[in-house]
Simulated scan of single mutants.
Amino acid sequence: MAQTVLHIDSSARLSGSTSRDLTAQVVERLGAKQVIRRDLATPLPMLDEAWIGANFTPADQRTDDQKATLALSDTLVAELQAADTIVLGAPIYNFTVPTNLKAWIDLVARAGVTFRYTEAGPEGLLTGKRVVLVIASGGTEAGSDIDFACRYLRHMLGFIGLTEVELVAADQQMVDAEGSAKKAQDAIAALAA
């Protein structure tokens, strides 16, 4: 049983969303003692010059304005740090992730906070956590040459140290809705609680 789950949804659809439905089932299956909820349907701010300037200013030298600029990013990182398991729902839009999910990644991938550079290359700092990645698509097959979402998410999650990634895919729903749903349900049933 997971102690603390960070439940993230990124679908723009608040109702009728396959990825939202499946992430809720995964969270229930895991039986967490505590669930931190992060819904990305409300867009996050995009990185801008002020954010980048604040981020690259040493923490002990930041102005109050710079601290305020990084406050949301700090909260998002703290959610990741507090979680034992991350359940991340991502529909595939135009072969990749929704823009709101990309904005979340931009806000949590921070040098010296969630990863660091070493002589051997970058090293993720959010280690020892489990990720259940829930993917939904109409026509894109998860893991195929045209699936840029799964590849990108696995890379970015690994970059910040989240390398234990399990996939629940309800892909190609427009091709075989019944088969897609069964495959996703089988993957959820196979998850260790």
Rank of each mutant, 00 (worst) to 15 (best):
residue 101 L to T: 06
residue 65 D to S: 15
residue 172 Q to A: 07
residue 126 L to G: 00
residue 53 G to N: 13
residue 109 A to H: 05
residue 94 N to A: 03
residue 5 V to T: 05
residue 18 T to S: 11
residue 154 R to G: 04
residue 45 P to G: 10
residue 104 W to D: 03
residue 47 L to Y: 14
residue 167 L to V: 14
residue 127 T to S: 09
residue 95 F to C: 06
residue 3 Q to S: 10
residue 95 F to I: 09
residue 56 F to Q: 09
residue 2 A to L: 14
residue 88 L to Y: 01
residue 135 I to Q: 05
residue 115 F to Y: 05
residue 61 Q to N: 12
residue 173 Q to I: 15
residue 42 T to N: 11
residue 159 F to K: 00
residue 157 L to Y: 01
residue 178 E to Y: 12
residue 181 A to P: 05
residue 179 G to T: 01
residue 74 D to P: 03
residue 173 Q to G: 13
residue 58 P to L: 07
residue 45 P to E: 10
residue 44 L to M: 08
residue 164 E to N: 15
residue 143 G to Y: 06
residue 193 A to E: 13
residue 133 L to F: 03
residue 151 R to D: 13
residue 61 Q to I: 10
residue 31 G to V: 06
residue 131 V to M: 03
residue 105 I to G: 11
residue 53 G to K: 12
residue 17 S to P: 04
residue 1 M to W: 12
residue 17 S to A: 14
residue 158 G to N: 02
residue 175 V to H: 00
residue 83 A to K: 00
residue 152 Y to W: 13
residue 13 R to P: 08
residue 4 T to D: 07
residue 24 A to M: 09
residue 114 T to G: 00
residue 9 D to W: 04
residue 176 D to R: 00
residue 93 Y to E: 07
residue 27 V to W: 04
residue 74 D to E: 11
residue 62 R to A: 06
residue 161 G to A: 06
residue 188 I to Y: 06
residue 166 E to M: 12
residue 50 A to G: 14
residue 136 A to N: 04
residue 78 A to F: 03
residue 41 A to C: 13
residue 67 K to S: 14
residue 106 D to V: 10
residue 58 P to Y: 07
residue 144 S to A: 09
residue 53 G to S: 14
residue 77 V to S: 01
residue 87 V to C: 04
residue 32 A to E: 05
residue 24 A to F: 05
residue 35 V to Q: 09
residue 154 R to C: 07
residue 143 G to S: 10
residue 120 A to E: 13
residue 167 L to F: 14
residue 121 G to F: 02
residue 149 A to R: 02
residue 171 D to A: 03
residue 54 A to Q: 04
residue 79 E to M: 09
residue 9 D to C: 12
residue 51 W to P: 01
residue 29 R to L: 09
residue 152 Y to P: 03
residue 93 Y to T: 05
residue 22 L to N: 00
residue 135 I to H: 02
residue 170 A to S: 11
residue 166 E to W: 12
residue 174 M to H: 14
residue 90 A to D: 05
residue 193 A to R: 15
residue 160 I to K: 01
residue 123 E to D: 08
residue 82 A to Q: 15
residue 183 K to E: 12
residue 173 Q to V: 13
residue 56 F to Y: 11
